[in-house]
Computed example of a mutant assay.
Amino acid sequence: MEMMKDADIILIADVPFGQGNINTLMGIEDLKGAVYLHTSCLNRDFTAGMLKKCLDRIALQKKIIEIGDYDELLEMLKRNEDQNQLSD
């Protein structure tokens, strides 16, 4: 959590979620960064539904932007950067 506290972007990557790493999602809703979710991780949930519960809790506080692959994420970030440069 300490490493993510100042991040502008929080990526929930395409990794399997199990009892050993589900706790990494605890508290994300309180961080300032935008949350991106690689949707493939939803098919790799080995937490008996805890992953969905964590994501639902995060979604109550923050928008979760779903991505299907990392190229899509890079495109989104590039568009946002271009828009920010135009507005400056």
Score class of each variant (00 low, 15 high):
residue 1 M to I: 07
residue 1 M to K: 09
residue 1 M to T: 14
residue 1 M to L: 12
residue 2 E to L: 08
residue 4 M to N: 13
residue 4 M to D: 10
residue 4 M to S: 14
residue 5 K to E: 13
residue 5 K to M: 07
residue 6 D to H: 09
residue 6 D to V: 02
residue 8 D to L: 00
residue 8 D to C: 01
residue 9 I to E: 10
residue 9 I to K: 07
residue 9 I to C: 07
residue 10 I to G: 06
residue 10 I to K: 05
residue 11 L to W: 14
residue 11 L to R: 10
residue 11 L to D: 11
residue 11 L to S: 11
residue 12 I to P: 10
residue 12 I to V: 11
residue 12 I to D: 07
residue 14 D to C: 13
residue 15 V to I: 15
residue 15 V to Q: 12
residue 16 P to H: 06
residue 17 F to R: 03
residue 19 Q to R: 10
residue 19 Q to F: 06
residue 19 Q to T: 10
residue 19 Q to K: 10
residue 20 G to P: 06
residue 21 N to Q: 03
residue 21 N to K: 04
residue 22 I to P: 07
residue 22 I to Q: 00
residue 22 I to Y: 00
residue 23 N to A: 11
residue 24 T to D: 13
residue 24 T to F: 07
residue 25 L to C: 09
residue 25 L to W: 00
residue 26 M to Y: 15
residue 27 G to L: 01
residue 27 G to T: 00
residue 28 I to W: 00
residue 29 E to V: 00
residue 29 E to W: 01
residue 30 D to W: 00
residue 30 D to H: 06
residue 32 K to M: 03
residue 33 G to L: 02
residue 33 G to K: 01
residue 33 G to H: 03
residue 34 A to M: 04
residue 34 A to F: 02
residue 35 V to H: 07
residue 35 V to P: 08
residue 36 Y to A: 01
residue 36 Y to L: 00
residue 37 L to F: 02
residue 38 H to A: 13
residue 38 H to P: 05
residue 38 H to C: 08
residue 39 T to S: 14
residue 40 S to Y: 08
residue 40 S to K: 13
residue 40 S to C: 08
residue 40 S to N: 15
residue 41 C to W: 05
residue 41 C to V: 10
residue 41 C to T: 15
residue 42 L to G: 10
residue 42 L to A: 09
residue 43 N to L: 03
residue 44 R to V: 00
residue 45 D to Y: 02
residue 46 F to E: 12
residue 46 F to Y: 15
residue 46 F to V: 06
residue 46 F to H: 15
residue 47 T to Q: 03
residue 47 T to G: 07
residue 48 A to D: 03
residue 49 G to F: 00
residue 49 G to T: 00
residue 50 M to F: 09
residue 51 L to P: 12
residue 53 K to V: 02
residue 53 K to T: 03
residue 54 C to N: 14
residue 55 L to T: 03
residue 55 L to G: 05
residue 56 D to E: 14
residue 56 D to S: 12
residue 58 I to W: 01
residue 58 I to G: 05
residue 59 A to T: 02
residue 59 A to D: 03
residue 59 A to L: 01
residue 59 A to P: 05
residue 60 L to E: 04
residue 60 L to K: 13
residue 62 K to P: 09
residue 62 K to M: 04
residue 62 K to N: 09
residue 62 K to G: 08
residue 63 K to H: 11
residue 64 I to P: 08
residue 64 I to A: 10
residue 65 I to Q: 03
residue 65 I to H: 08
residue 65 I to Y: 05
residue 65 I to V: 05
residue 66 E to S: 13
residue 66 E to W: 06
residue 68 G to L: 02
residue 68 G to V: 01
residue 69 D to K: 15
residue 70 Y to R: 12
residue 70 Y to A: 08
residue 71 D to I: 09
residue 71 D to T: 13
residue 71 D to K: 12
residue 72 E to D: 14
residue 72 E to F: 08
residue 73 L to P: 12
residue 73 L to Q: 06
residue 73 L to D: 04
residue 73 L to F: 05
residue 74 L to A: 11
residue 76 M to E: 04
residue 77 L to Y: 08
residue 77 L to V: 08
residue 78 K to V: 04
residue 78 K to Q: 12
residue 78 K to D: 07
residue 80 N to S: 15
residue 80 N to V: 12
residue 82 D to W: 05
residue 83 Q to P: 09
residue 85 Q to T: 11
residue 86 L to D: 14
residue 86 L to F: 12
residue 86 L to N: 14
residue 86 L to V: 11
residue 86 L to K: 14
residue 87 S to W: 09
residue 87 S to N: 12
residue 88 D to G: 13
